[in-house]
């Protein structure tokens, strides 16, 4: 099964994380929200599948290309 790694697109702070390891997600659903530039940026999954790994926790400061989640699809 292929893995899709969802990366942080822009530097900011994680506001909330909507998924846990093992959750089933559908394409387009919101994985987490990152606050940056005084805006809330929803991060969506581009694939449907199972969450294999979650790399962020709420309140965490993140940089571009860090792993938010890995989805097996």
């Amino acid at each position: 099964m292929p893995l899709e790694t969802i990366e942080v697109p822009l530097a900011g702070k994680v506001l909330k994380v909507n998924v846990n390891r093992g959750d089933k997600v559908t394409e387009g659903s919101e994985i987490c929200t990152i606050e940056s530039m005084k805006m809330e940026n929803p991060i969506l999954t581009p694939v449907s599948g199972i969450v294999k790994e979650v790399g962020v926790t709420p309140g965490q400061v993140v940089k571009p290309h860090e792993t938010i989640a890995v989805i097996e699809y």
Binding site: L10, A11, G12, K13, S36, M37, K38, V61, K63
Partner: peptide, 11 residues
């Protein structure tokens, strides 16, 4: 500026 960068991107 560094303080603004910190405020808006936490960097």
């Amino acid at each position: 500026s560094p303080p603004l960068l910190k405020a808006i991107t936490f960097t």
